[in-house]
């Protein structure tokens, strides 16, 4: 968590350094202009808002992962076999993310039909992903890995569940974008929300890949190194 915060702090520090924090406002009058004036962030507010939200959601996942590693160190932890279905769903989510990128590109080119098609396909694959996750849960439950059976089981359901909720939230935003697109003839007005959805999907994919690496034990070495550093 502290490493995650350090990254955020570095970004904030870099930005603040551009803002003239060493200025002496008591000596300066007028409206600052010219190259030395502090620059604003040039992105649109919605994108900045989403960026901040991703930082908050990122903090949430990082905290869950920290909890995972702390709990894992306790003696009653029994590793969990991962259903192979998860690798299929990973592929589906990657496809979904790619399709949304495609939609963003088509929207930028102004190709309405293509954009609509890519968005629909992207949404459909995301729904398939969530359904796949649920199927994986079912397999686990049928395999006798109940939610309260062992902390490793609980973490599996919690991490995948919180991630799936984020996908559902994204789908709601996508549905809103889609409705807006059908309402207006002008593709330009929905270009920005489509771009935001694509960015969010990239985030979902990255988070999922990290979670998968942790759940399958691929990131155990890393967890151990972090643990050693702290103790």
């Amino acid at each position: 968590m502290l490493a995650f915060l350090a990254v955020l702090a570095t970004i904030a520090a870099w930005w603040l350094s551009q803002q003239g924090l060493a200025a002496k406002p008591w000596l300066e009058e007028g409206v600052p202009v010219g190259p030395r004036a502090p620059r604003r962030i040039s992105t649109e507010p919605a994108k900045l808002g989403l960026g901040l939200f991703l930082a908050v959601a990122g903090a949430l996942f990082v905290l869950l992962i920290s909890g995972y590693f702390m709990r894992k160190g306790l003696p009653d932890w029994r590793p969990l076999p991962m259903p192979p279905l998860l690798f299929v769903t990973t592929g589906v989510l990657a496809a979904s993310s790619l399709l949304l990128r495609l939609a963003r590109r088509s929207a930028e080119r102004g190709a309405r039909e293509e954009t609509q098609l890519a968005l629909t396909a992207g949404a459909a694959t995301a729904i398939v992903f969530v359904a796949g996750q649920m199927a994986a849960w079912r397999q686990m439950l049928e395999g006798g890995f109940g939610i309260a059976g062992n902390p490793s089981n609980t973490f599996f359901y919690l991490l995948t569940g919180v991630h799936a909720l984020h996908v559902l939230g994204g789908l709601a935003a996508l549905a809103w974008t889609f409705a807006k697109m059908r309402e207006s003839d002008d593709l330009a007005s929905t270009r920005s929300p489509i771009g935001l959805c694509a960015l969010y999907w990239d985030f979902l994919l990255v988070v999922w890949l990290v979670l998968l690496a942790i759940l399958t034990g691929f990131a155990d070495g890393l967890g151990e190194i972090c643990g050693r550093l702290l103790s």
């Binding site: 603040l16 924090l21 007028g30 507010p45 900045l48």
Partner: peptide
């Protein structure tokens, strides 16, 4: 970050 009016720098 985005809504400040003209001339309103962070340090003001």
């Amino acid at each position: 970050l985005q809504g400040r009016t003209r001339g309103m720098t962070l340090m003001r």
